[in-house]
């Protein structure tokens, strides 16, 4: 009941800021353009997912941290009211993460629907991309919340860490892996590579996409190893568990910080 009242207020506030509408609109434009130029096939879906893999973590983390800073007054106001802190924490999180996920889903799904791609392309692939986008939104918004709470008094630090983490996970990580492959190419490094891929949620999502579109062959022998691993029931379970852990851990830590915090 209380959580719902809080969510309702936040959604109204987000919509009034129009920012969230713009965010959904970006996906609409991207999906529309990709389908228009790439045809209503797997190629367009792959392009959409590539952009999504960069954009969602960035927006989720930055805006997650920023949102906590912006909601400080709101938080202080509510903490003096008869409400428990966990409700407030989940209210704040849901108030941001759910609209972000919704904006992504609506923005991506609309062009897929009106272009008729929903019939021509594989429904499984479309659903998988939407699911991954939603999981990544929750995951990185949670991570942004954790950064925001960890550096509650120092916004520059909080936002800085969020930005650097994004740069590392989304951009540098792959370069480092490539470097490792280049340096240790003569050794059997498939297993460590597998571990490295599991350790980065963006990579995990990317590999899932690659496997879905069956282009892991591009990755040579490593791709074959991935294919064999992630194609098996055990592989899918491990990957899902990893993503789940990545989602839960920052939220759990963030919640704990929030419960102990002095306002």
């Amino acid at each position: 009941m209380k959580a719902l009242t809080i969510l309702q207020y936040q959604w109204k506030d987000l919509l009034r800021g129009k920012w969230i509408v713009g965010y959904g609109f970006i996906y609409l434009l991207i999906a529309d353009a990709m389908i228009r130029f790439g045809g209503a096939g797997p190629k367009a879906l792959l392009s959409i997912s590539n952009i999504m893999l960069l954009l969602i973590p960035l927006v989720g983390m930055i805006y997650g941290a920023l949102y906590l800073y912006q909601s400080r007054e709101f938080t202080e106001l509510l903490l003096a009211q008869p409400i428990d802190r966990p409700t407030l924490f989940w209210g704040l999180f849901g108030g941001l993460a759910l609209p972000l996920a919704l904006a992504f889903t609506a923005g991506t799904l609309l062009p897929i629907l009106y272009s008729g791609m929903i019939i021509t392309a594989s429904l499984r692939s479309i659903l998988l991309i939407l699911l991954l986008g939603n999981v990544l939104t929750l995951l990185f918004t949670g991570l942004g919340f954790w950064f925001g709470l960890r550096f509650f008094e120092d916004r520059v630090k909080g936002l800085g860490f969020a930005l650097v983490s994004w740069l590392f996970l989304a951009v540098l990580y792959d370069g480092l892996i490539l470097l490792a492959v280049f340096a240790f190419g003569d050794y059997p490094i498939e297993k460590p590579m597998l571990g490295l891929a599991l350790a980065n949620p963006i990579d995990l999502a990317r590999i899932t996409v690659l496997l879905e579109f069956d282009i892991s062959a591009l990755m040579g022998y490593t791709g074959a190893v991935f294919n064999r691993f992630f194609g098996s029931a055990a592989g899918i379970t491990v990957a899902a568990v990893c993503l789940l852990l990545w989602t839960i851990t920052p939220l759990w830590r963030g919640n704990r910080l929030f419960l102990k915090k002095d306002f």
Partner: peptide, 20 residues
């Protein structure tokens, strides 16, 4: 937390959600 139902608090620096 429910005990706060019986407390009215007026803070030193009044900060409220700006858009409301």
């Amino acid at each position: 937390w429910d005990y706060r139902r019986n407390i009215g608090y007026m803070p030193q620096v009044a900060r409220y959600p700006e858009n409301m």
